[in-house]
Nucleic acid binder design. Sequence first.
DNA 1: TTATTTAGAGACTATTTTATCTTATTTTTG
DNA 2: CAAAAATAAGATAAAATAGTCTCTAAATAA
Lengths: 157, 157
Amino acid sequence: MVLSKACTYGILASLYVARESSRSKDYVSIGKMSKELNISFHFLTKILQQLTSAGILVSMKGPKGGVALKRDPKEISLVDVVVAIDGMGLFTDCLLGLPGCGEEKPCPVHGEWDGIRANLFHTFRGKNLEETAKSIDELNLRFALPAGAEVDREDSG
Amino acid sequence: MVLSKACTYGILASLYVARESSRSKDYVSIGKMSKELNISFHFLTKILQQLTSAGILVSMKGPKGGVALKRDPKEISLVDVVVAIDGMGLFTDCLLGLPGCGEEKPCPVHGEWDGIRANLFHTFRGKNLEETAKSIDELNLRFALPAGAEVDREDSG
DNA sequence: TTATTTAGAGACTATTTTATCTTATTTTTG
DNA sequence: CAAAAATAAGATAAAATAGTCTCTAAATAA
Ligand code: FES
Ligand code: FES
C-alpha cells in the first residue's frame, strides 16, 4: 500500500471539506462527513485532528461546529495532506528500505525510484484541493468508500 | 511504505542469489545469506518459500542445500519478485483505496496515479536480476541492511 | 443557567505485518 | 544406516496499523 489507510481517509475528507466549503462558509460536520464517506467516525476524527494540528484544518466545537479549511483551498496541495499524515517518507525513503537513501551510497534501484518519486511528488504537489474538489462534480468522480463493502487487496496465492 | 518489508527482503535476497549464481552453480545457503544481508533467518526463509512456490527460485535441503534461481536471471524482472510477494495491488489498486480502480468510475487522482504506476511497472519490469546484480559490483552499490541498526520512518510530528 | 450538540482525548480492542522459536523432513557424508 | 546439515512448516510473540468505545470540554440555543 502506497498510502496508509489513515492517509487515504485524510485525502477523501479534505476533498469533502473543500467541496462543501465551495457551497457555504459553515463548518463541516464530522458526523455527517463520516456517514457520507463511510468512514468510521472516531477514526476519522483522529485523522482530522492530525490535519488540524498540521495547520490544514481548523475545528469548532458545539452545535454548528465541525471542521473547515484553514487556508485557501487553492493553496493546499494533496502532498500537504499526505505529509501531514504519512510524513515525507514516501518521497525520501529508499524503495528497498535501506537507511539513508541518496546518491552517495545508492541501492540498485535508486536511479529509477528517485525519478519516479520525484514525479509523484511534483504531480501531487500540483494538485490543489480547490481544483481537485471541483473536478469531482464536473467529471462525476468517485470519492467515497462504498456503503458496507470492504476493500480487499489482491495477493499472490 | 510502497513495498512491504517482506517484499524488500525478497528483492535483496533475489539479487544476492543472482550475484552468487554468477560465480558458481551451487545452491546459495539461506543461513549465509541471512547473515550477510542482516535479515532474520526464519523470516527470510518464509519469503524465499514464497519465491520458490512462485517459480522464481528452486530449493534443496540437506548439506550443500539452499536456494537457486529457477530461470535465467536475465528473464526474471524485479516486478516478478514484487508480484510474487506483494501481489499486483501496487500496479492495479486505487491510490485512495477505493474498490475497482479504472476509467469507468475514476477517483480524483486516477489520471495521475494511473500514469505514475504504469511508469513504475514498466521501469521495474525492465530491470532484470542479471543486469541489476551485475551493477552492484560495477557501481559498488549497497544492497544489504546495516549490521545492528534499525530503519526508522520519518513522521509528521 | 441548563440542556444539547458537537469535537477532543485517551483507553481499549482487533487485525495485519513482522519476527522468533520449535519441530519435522530431506539430503549429504561417513 | 546413523549423524549432521540444511530447508519446510507451524506455533507463538511482538509491533504496527486500524478501528471502537467512553468520557470530557467547549459552544450554541433555549
Ligand atoms: S537508496 Fe534505495 S531508493 Fe535511494
Ligand atoms: S480509481 Fe483511484 S487511482 Fe484509479
